[in-house]
Nucleic acid binder design. Sequence first.
DNA 1: TCAAAAGTGTTGCAACTACACCCATGT
DNA 2: ACATGGGTGTAGTTGCAACACTTTTGA
Lengths: 241, 241
Amino acid sequence: MIKYSGQTRILVAVDCIIFGFDGENYKLLLVQRGFAPERAKWSLMGGFIRPEETLEQAANRILKQLTGLENVYMEQLQAFSNPNRDPVERTIAVAFFALIDIHKYEKQLSKDYHAEWFPIKEMPQLIFDHEKMVEMAKNSLRYKAAFHPILFELLPEKFTIPQLQALYEGLYDTTLDKRNFSRKLLSTGLLIKQADKDKESSKKGAFYYKLDQTKYLDDFQSFLNFIPKPDKFLINETSLN
Amino acid sequence: MIKYSGQTRILVAVDCIIFGFDGENYKLLLVQRGFAPERAKWSLMGGFIRPEETLEQAANRILKQLTGLENVYMEQLQAFSNPNRDPVERTIAVAFFALIDIHKYEKQLSKDYHAEWFPIKEMPQLIFDHEKMVEMAKNSLRYKAAFHPILFELLPEKFTIPQLQALYEGLYDTTLDKRNFSRKLLSTGLLIKQADKDKESSKKGAFYYKLDQTKYLDDFQSFLNFIPKPDKFLINETSLN
DNA sequence: TCAAAAGTGTTGCAACTACACCCATGT
DNA sequence: ACATGGGTGTAGTTGCAACACTTTTGA
């Protein structure tokens, strides 16, 4: 096969920002790097792209290696291309962010890696430009979640409205009126009330709901205003480069 | 220098979706490819990234080569990574979209390339996956412009409200009430009325306005609802891969 | 019985849509 | 004088935020 001549070929990596929510705090799944440089320091889960796969496939492969999970919500975020971002050799990294139900994460699957959940607010120092990636992923999640019913991806199949509210409150670091919140959520028609209750976090118990999957997929692209006055929150999706 | 071993290095290219607006229609600046494969077919302006530059720098370099313009509004869109997207050799392309004032485009600068503006609706067939890139860029522009005062980038320094309205109407393929539109625009406080009028397109003439640059930069991240009921328009920013 | 969280309804305000007429000017 | 596009005000509606009390039940 003829090749393009005179051009430089570059390493291309994928890095995954994996979000979870434990009911109280947003968490990030980080790994302790197993090889030099920066060995034993914390890092996003990443890896090099292989010749026969797309970036998306690479990200899913890597996510599966680490968590055992497939069919996870994942979005391409940005490519990071500072020539010096990796001191070993020039590497362009394409960052993805993923939302997973923290309870589905199977710890034993990742015994090869030393992986750990960190509350976002107590994140250790990360290697290279990974902190910038996390910052952008947080912005992007805030931006998207303000209009799209995306945070359900962080919850199990059955969830309660107070759980959802904690999710929104945590993301925007605010408090919401529960009457307005539940009215707004229910008015989307996305939720199907279950007969049973979650008694974990209150004596009275909160009714479980499930997502109406059909409507969820249909409505995904529409704009739903989940957050009052979003301009308060300095949401943005712009590059921080 | 130590290198990562056993990994494949890949060609990385940048492709630019360059939007303009002529007062009536959105246009794309396309070039006729000067080299094989697909020689003489239309394509986005692109090129390979160089060892010492970021993707953003590469995109700006390429944009300058083609249009002579610098300091143009540009955003990273997505990386496209299908292993077969370029039949010659695997190439990952990172797409950028740019908004330029079509009148600033200096034709003579691009005599090396055969470049031409096409109305988006009459775009020729493009090579590789460039049509998918354009599709995504359109979506992304619609998405962003619904909330951020971004379309000003397509107009000259002095512009009229009817011109702006045409811009919004064209992007969302709709018609807007001019009373509501101008009220909404003026209420942002972003516009500074000039003393003179544009008499090109009407007998009465329409007052020129300029952007309040300070406020523009301050407000850029806030959400302004430029488009009534945005959920009508199937705006999305999701990957189409 | 009390503490802790769930659930629910109303009212006022602000923001938006719909809508029609006059103005300025070039031909 | 008339045709063309520019500019403006109001009224009705809708959607949102603000707000407090009752319910359930485990300890």
